[in-house]
Amino acid sequence: MPTDDMTARPTTSREDGLAAEVRTLLRTGLPIRLAAGPRLLGLRGVQARARRPDDPSSLARALDGLLREQLDRLENTGLAEASRLLFGAEAATSGATLTARRQAAADASGYEVHHFRKRIEPKLIDLVAWQLRRDSDTFMARHATAPELRAATRPLVLPADVFAWEAVEHQHALARLWGAVYLLRAELLTTARLASMDAPATETDAAATRALWRHALVLAAAAEYRAAYGAALLDRAGDTDLGPDQIAAYAGWTPPLSPAADLILVRLADPDGSLADFTARLDAARGGSELTADWRRALSGRDRDTDPNTLPAAAPEGSTP
């Protein structure tokens, strides 16, 4: 007879209601229907596995697979088979009533069925809920972090593997995006310092113009990422909202621009070009001078009497020269 000592597990799952939803799910067992609980469907591990996280049926399929995996990996190996029978993960009990599944699980584990229901089943439910929570916890937290850099101890040698190539391409796009964000941040900080120090307007304006150039390059890098990988970050885990545009905003506050102005800036941004090239082309574009002037005023604080969030940004519609 297997040990039923499973008291070492944390009680978090019970407290947050996850175990209650697992208990409810157990009534119908596997395969999972659409009516699974919101806490279960909202688990980061489920969201990350779902092909379409906004589609409830896709979430249910992801939960189904995750639950089967956790049952296959049950921490208490002595009760692994009983757990699969109980939840209907085995062909023998798939789709069966809870009574039939419970009887099969009790038989397989060598317990009398009433003892199993009262003593073993609740602990199994807690254990499964705990494993589901632990799985989700291993996915990263919901915030954007730049690629972590580490001290290199040897030359970079890639295995001849498609994922290695894909990973390099993706990291390349991410590095370009984050690199552009940090360069913009540097210019925004400088502009703020100059404004704070009451520097001559020419100096502050020059810094603000460099910030505008860097902002255009951030927009271009975000557009490049979107074209390659879509509107959401590939490594976003459960955070379905995080995309290149959100990362672009991490540099700091920038004056709000109209979508048309954004498009113009993206078109003018050339990662291999210079600041002089950019400003010349922007000045030549229709509305470009006004856009630059508005941007400078907003960043230098000369518009502080007005709410910066309602700044009427220029929306140049002219084409590039």
């Binding site: 996915f139 295995p159 590939l234």
Partner: peptide
């Protein structure tokens, strides 16, 4: 291998 730059969460996903 040298895939240290491919963050663990990406590989895990």
């Amino acid at each position: 291998d040298d895939l240290v730059f491919a963050q663990e969460r990406e590989i895990r996903r």
